[in-house]
Simulated assay, not measured.
Amino acid sequence: MSTLKPEVNSKDHVQGSDSASITIVEFGDYQCPYCGDAYPIIKEIQDAFGNQIKFVFRNFPLQKSHELAYPAAIAAEAAALQDKFWEMHDAIYENQYRLTDQLFNELAEKIGLNTEQFQEDSLSDEIKQKVEDDFESGVRSGVNGTPSFYVNGTKFDGGATDLYQMLKESTE
């Protein structure tokens, strides 16, 4: 059984209540079509379960098959430095069908970032390190594809739809 390494911590991007009984961690790739399909389902899960769910996203860009996954992860992390990680995360998935290198600056402007700061931050070693740390954590946790979900620290076998089903059954 694969477990999450390291556990959810202050370096993670977290949505939801600290008192949530269920923590879901997704290792995702912004260019992966399956992650794109999972995105609206995760939103539904968050809507349906509200404060019961804490959702964490970790970057797992599969650079060999998705050349824009890493720049997308960098863009999301650069947005995080202006407290807009989730806005950028959502904007990238919502525009996944038109992913290009130029898209990130356009989205940065759209979500209200200081674009000069954003471009500068995108080049920082700190940001690259965060993406690499997330990826490394995925490798250590046994991630073998995206999206991979961990529920309360344990690898969940299945996709977002299966996850939704399991949560519905366990909270009835």
Rank of each mutant, 00 (worst) to 15 (best):
A78W: 10
E132M: 11
K54W: 00
L68M: 09
D47K: 15
A80M: 10
L113H: 09
S170W: 06
I45G: 01
F49C: 03
N105V: 12
I127D: 10
E169S: 11
Q165C: 01
D37K: 15
D134M: 02
H89K: 11
G158W: 07
L62Y: 10
D18N: 14
D162N: 14
E136I: 11
F149L: 08
E132P: 03
Q119T: 09
D125A: 14
K54F: 03
A73G: 13
G158L: 05
T171H: 14
G145W: 01
A108I: 05
S170H: 05
V8T: 09
A160E: 08
V131I: 13
A160W: 07
P147R: 08
I24P: 02
K130Q: 12
R98F: 12
A160C: 08
Q31E: 15
F55Q: 05
L62H: 09
G36Y: 04
N152Y: 07
Y164T: 05
T100K: 13
Q165T: 14
F149S: 05
I74E: 05
A76L: 04
K5T: 13
F60M: 08
V151N: 00
L99C: 08
I74T: 04
Q96W: 00
K11N: 15
L167H: 10
A108H: 06
L68D: 11
T154D: 07
D90Q: 12
F104I: 06
T171I: 11
R98P: 10
Q96A: 14
L113Q: 07
F149M: 01
K110D: 01
H66V: 12
P40Q: 09
Q165H: 12
N95H: 08
I45Q: 01
Q31F: 05
S122R: 15
Y39C: 03
D29R: 06
Y34V: 09
G145R: 07
E67C: 07
A48W: 00
